[in-house]
Amino acid sequence: MATIKDLYHPDWDEMVENWINHIPHGDILGSSPNAKNLVEQVASTKISEFLPDKSLIDIVPGLRERTLKDALILRTKALYHFHASKSLNEIGHSTFTLISMYDACFFSAKSLVYLFGLRDFSRDSKIYLQIFRKEKQKKSHSIVDGHYIYVLEDRLTHNMVWQLFPRLSNTIKGKNPNVITLKSFSRRRFDQFSRERNRYSYESSSWSREDNLMSSDLIYQQTYLENRKYDTSHGIEYAEYYDEYYRTAHIIINIIDEFLSEMAKKAPAINKYLDISPPLPKLKNQVFL
């Protein structure tokens, strides 16, 4: 079984060029022939759960286009939750701003993993596919283009996202300034990143930062003013509680937007997508509390 350390080291500049050649046709967020169930699509090429670990397979038609589409949808979901957090805070649902902002972190991290060329085989599978892989054949010395299989310890759970994202970010290569940002950012601790969100979601007696539930926003609507200041200052101010979720989501979405902006220089469809779903304003303070 492969481990996280067996994964390839993505190259920012190569991945931008790779995706430019595989832009989905038609409405980039809508339905298309490439949007059919991935399991059915891959199964049609006789890929199964019994494939050898760490092996190269032939290109699955449409898989790269489908993966890019999925990455864009995940980014759009991340933006949805990021902006929803502001609205939730404004109407006094302060605790749910944390849950929503965590979702912005999760969807943006998963989107970036896809953009760096790694995706899950299906929701219930431990098989992962490196979307772009070229290998030299020993006998013919020819270069074969295909997908590379890793069988990891678990399916793409929240825990796996917070292992894959820092690993790929820490090993990324390239000349873009965001490569340095990612390497530095990925050294943060992500092994317990879901803990605060899980405590509120799964522990029946837990809610918000208040020990007394009767004085919390579970009973009375409360707006955290520092969260409002974070939104209006684009991160100069610190959010009132669990600022880490705000700042993490903001950084990852900014990096995705930079990646897509590079693609948009050569891909009109990506430029059109960014018109529909505009980039997030730049985070003005990347320092965590």
Rank of each mutant, 00 (worst) to 15 (best):
I99F: 07
T97K: 00
L74N: 02
L115M: 09
I73T: 08
K77Y: 15
I73K: 01
F96Y: 12
S94I: 03
R75C: 02
R119E: 15
D70Q: 12
S108F: 05
L72D: 05
D103H: 12
I99Q: 07
L112S: 05
H81M: 04
A71W: 04
Y114N: 08
Y80I: 01
Y80H: 11
A109C: 14
R75E: 05
S111H: 03
R75W: 05
S94D: 15
A71I: 06
L79V: 03
Y102D: 13
G92K: 01
F116K: 00
F121L: 10
S111W: 04
L74M: 03
I91G: 02
H93K: 01
S122H: 12
L118S: 06
F82T: 02
S94V: 03
K77S: 13
I91C: 12
S100C: 08
S122L: 10
S87C: 06
C105R: 01
D103F: 11
T97P: 00
V113S: 02
F82S: 01
F96L: 09
L79N: 07
E90C: 01
C105V: 10
I73N: 09
F82I: 01
G117A: 12
I91H: 05
S94W: 06
K69L: 14
K77V: 06
S108G: 10
S87Q: 08
I73E: 08
D70L: 15
L112V: 07
L74D: 06
L115D: 09
L74G: 01
H93T: 06
G117I: 03
A109M: 13
A84D: 13
D120F: 07
A84Q: 09
L98S: 09
L88D: 09
K69D: 15
D103V: 01
A109Q: 09
G92V: 05
S122T: 10
C105M: 04
S108E: 07
F116R: 01
